[in-house]
């Protein structure tokens, strides 16, 4: 249990997808204009990460990993399918995103139109694939750990995007130098937020 809390907190604050790895920047930068739409996209990312990481965990452990196929027949003990991980992970992610897209379109058409192209683009959002690949690389021990890691990474991304959206709403009328308006200042804010998040590095529970 303590282990799970540790993974959760770490994936939100210490190994934050945005501030520690700079993953998923494209939608983070493009959709963070208002808190409302960012909340929608953030929740979608939390959901997709929370579902795809455990599914990919199962795929990794029961299909791809070296010797994973022994549950079919002991003869497959030395089959290593990890070279297929990218394509399988992406397939899972794409189908999940499709699902989310249909749900959002049905229940919140305004949010759907606000998110526009960035909703289907979650499928190629680096933080989602990154979540699955980190899961593979860090070799989590159980499905629960993988799920918690997926959710935590999603929540971290969510916090980052609503945080910057609120800041961007606040500075909308600031007299930012013309060349920096828009994306330039957003990059600078992201960097400054990264400095603020560094306080969590090295935390141990």
């Amino acid at each position: 249990m303590e282990n799970l809390v540790d993974i959760f907190v770490k994936s939100i604050f210490v190994d934050n997808m945005i501030f520690a790895y700079f993953l998923g920047m494209c939608s983070y930068l493009a959709v963070s204009k208002t808190v409302k739409t960012s909340t929608g996209l953030g929740l979608a990312v939390v959901f997709v990460l929370g579902i795809t990481v455990p599914i990919n965990y199962l795929i990794h452990n029961y299909i791809l990993k070296e010797g994973a196929l022994t549950w079919i027949s002991p003869a497959y003990a030395d089959v290593d399918l990890t070279f297929l991980s990218f394509i399988l992970f992406i397939a899972v992610i794409a189908s999940m995103v499709q699902l989310v897209e249909m749900v959002i379109e049905k229940f919140s058409p305004t949010l759907y139109s606000n998110l526009g192209i960035f909703l289907p683009l979650i499928a190629v959002n680096c933080s989602i694939l990154g979540g699955s690949l980190f899961m593979q690389e860090r070799a989590y021990n159980s499905l629960a750990e993988a799920t918690v890691f997926g959710l935590g990474s999603g929540v971290g991304w969510f916090l980052a995007i609503i945080g910057i959206a609120a800041i961007r709403e606040k500075i909308r009328y600031s007299n930012v130098p013309a060349p920096l308006r828009g994306l330039g200042i957003t990059f600078i804010i992201t960097g400054l937020m990264g400095i603020a998040f560094m306080g969590f590095m090295g935390i141990k529970f």
Binding site: V35, I162, G163, A165, A166, I167, E169, K170, L192, M193, I195, A196, F197, G199
Partner: peptide
């Protein structure tokens, strides 16, 4: 610093 970041939120 962290709360400065989240104050607008």
């Amino acid at each position: 610093l962290l709360m400065n970041v989240f104050a607008p939120l």
